[in-house]
Structures are given as C-alpha cells and as structure tokens.
C-alpha cells in the first residue's frame, strides 16, 4: 500500500473521530495540535484505525507512537 493511500484513509478516520472536516494530516501532527485529541478519544481513534485497515496494534507499539508520521509508518509496516 502506498503512503498516500494510507494518509487518505487515515484522514477520513480522523475527521470522523474528531468531528472536524477541515483536519489535514501531516507527519508531525500530534495530539496537542488537534482539538479534543485526548486520552479518551485516542483509544476510539486507535480502534477505528484498526477496523479501517484491518490490523491489530500492540500496546507497546502505541506507546512508542509520537505523531501521525509514526502511525503512518506503522500502518505501512503492517500492511
């Protein structure tokens, strides 16, 4: 799967979870940059990404994730 495909599909999930149509994903985007991206919505986001990409994350992988770029890389590895 190409990186652009991952980002496009990921953007749809993000827009839906954070209820923000204007959201644009960048590699260095972090939870601090997005309204309402807190520890509660984070797990809903993770669960929705797992469903969208049909993958399973490990907790250790999540703990190491620092920004959207890390998430995209991890998805590319898993697909």
């Amino acid at each position: 799967m190409e990186k652009t495909d991952v980002v496009t599909r990921l953007t749809i999930v993000f827009k839906n979870v954070f209820d923000n149509e204007a959201l644009v994903l960048k590699d260095d985007l972090t939870a601090n940059d997005v309204d309402n991206w807190d520890s509660l919505t984070h797990m809903i986001l993770i669960s929705d990404i797992e469903k969208e990409f049909e993958v399973k994350f490990k907790l250790k992988e999540l703990n190491k994730m620092r920004n959207v770029g890390d998430m995209v890389d991890l998805l590319l590895q898993k697909k």
Binding site: S39, M43, I44, I46, S47, E50, L59, N63
Partner: peptide
C-alpha cells in the same frame, strides 16, 4: 487507564 482502555477498545465508547 491506557492498558485498560486498550484491552477494552473493542467495546468502543
């Protein structure tokens, strides 16, 4: 909280 919510994430909200 994170390990707990991770293991319960299938239940959604």
């Amino acid at each position: 909280y994170t390990p707990l919510s991770f293991s319960l994430r299938k239940l959604g909200i």
